[in-house]
Amino acid sequence: MEERRALEAKVVEILADALDRRPDEIRLHSSLVDDLGAESIDFLDIVFRLESAFDVRIPEDEIWRGSVGLDPADPEALEAGLAGLRERMPDFRWDRFPARPGRHDLPRLITPETIVDYLSRLLARPAGTAAPSPSAPDAG
């Protein structure tokens, strides 16, 4: 639990730096895009900062696929994933989010919490194994 809190604090600190916000402006359920103003260029920056801070490698696209855990190519899993996110993100303006989101919509669902979740999985894995994705059965 303490580890989780430390991870959350570090992620919030990194996001605050990258998005030019005070840490107290960043809530775990804030949408990085809709609430915190992140643009595509910021995701490059955020991934780099996370990789440097945690000494991990985050493959291209993993920041949204791994973090949000949604695959637009799999409609069934997508619907299930969205249902879960709707529950976890009650403040998100779902009315402004497409019912059938495409790839480019997914970064809007990234929150500090989804990043923390993703990082916990990534950091829990032995070095050298594939990056985990919650939408696929864990290979371990």
């Binding site: 990258a18 998005l19 030019d20 103003g37 260029i41 920056d45």
Partner: peptide, 8 residues
């Protein structure tokens, strides 16, 4: 206007 851009 957008202080976030200072980092760029």
């Amino acid at each position: 206007r957008t202080p976030k851009a200072v980092k760029l």
